[in-house]
């Protein structure tokens, strides 16, 4: 079984976000495999170990993202593809187009990705990729069973569990709880440095800039307003309720 895993390198979730000149500062930041994508890598390795086949990890991202791919290889993936040509960077639309072009160049039975990335949290790329490829997808999986061509997927449906049956080829996305990702072993790290990692460019993928041009634009990047001290209402309970409703309407504008 050929399994492709789409992953993204993100900030470590414990990093502090600093904005400088309208951009998020990356100096000295620790990068990791996006935690949801880590579940995807783990699930792919387990399936491969059970059913045989090959796991290929793919990412679109800058040169530093190679580190995330090497980590996935150290965990046990067989091969990696890095699209680090800056011409391939854009938004979710772009990423899905680029991934589709990479995927179309190879054989696959199953694609696994994280449900979302912890940095921008859009949750769009994997699902868009399935659309680009014209294959079905099941998102936010907490359990995955593969029997021959048939797949039973348990998905987290806003707190409830939905069980979906599908057949390969298929794209699924991983939710927290799908598995507990392993640490790469020390020997895995050594082996990873000898496993194939291919870099691809716009030209390699036969894409043109127009094909993949971003459909969205970031106009401003800013941090949430710092948390201020809460306000404790006092007085008659009925008055407090009125005051609260009015504050929610006018001050925080959370109620229409």
């Amino acid at each position: 079984m050929n399994i492709l895993v789409c992953l993204k390198q993100t900030f470590d979730t414990e990093e502090r976000i600093v904005i400088e000149n309208g951009k998020i500062k990356e100096d000295g930041v620790k990068f990791v495999i996006n935690p949801y994508d880590e579940y995807a890598v783990e699930e792919a390795i387990r399936l491969r170990d059970d059913l045989g086949g090959q796991v290929t990890v793919i990412t679109v991202g800058p040169e530093r993202a190679e580190e995330a791919l090497r980590t996935a290889l150290a965990m046990g993936a067989d091969e990696a593809i890095l699209a680090d040509d800056p011409a391939l960077f854009g938004d979710e639309y772009t990423a899905a187009k680029v991934l589709a072009a990479i995927v179309k160049q190879r054989e696959f039975d199953l694609i696994i990705a994280g449900n979302q990335a912890v940095d921008d949290g859009s949750g769009q790329v994997a699902v868009r990729l399935a659309e680009e490829l014209g294959i079905p997808h099941v998102s936010t999986l907490t359990k995955l069973e593969v029997n021959g061509n048939q797949v039973v997927a348990h998905r987290d449906a806003e707190g409830d569990e939905e069980i979906v049956e599908a057949s390969l080829p298929l794209l699924v996305t991983a939710q927290q709880g799908l598995n507990e990702p392993r640490y790469p072993s020390l020997i895995g790290i050594r082996k990873a440095n000898k496993k194939p990692l291919t870099k691809v460019t716009l030209a390699d993928l036969g894409l043109s800039l127009e094909d993949i041009e971003a459909r969205t634009e970031i106009t401003e990047t800013f941090l949430p307003a710092p948390k201020t001290a809460g306000q404790i209402l006092s007085g008659d309970l009925a008055d407090q309720v009125k005051e609260l409703v009015s504050a929610l309407k006018t001050k925080d504008k959370v109620v229409g």
Partner: peptide, 8 residues
């Protein structure tokens, strides 16, 4: 052991 810490 799984991490390889016994085989350094």
């Amino acid at each position: 052991k799984a991490l390889g810490l016994f085989g350094l």
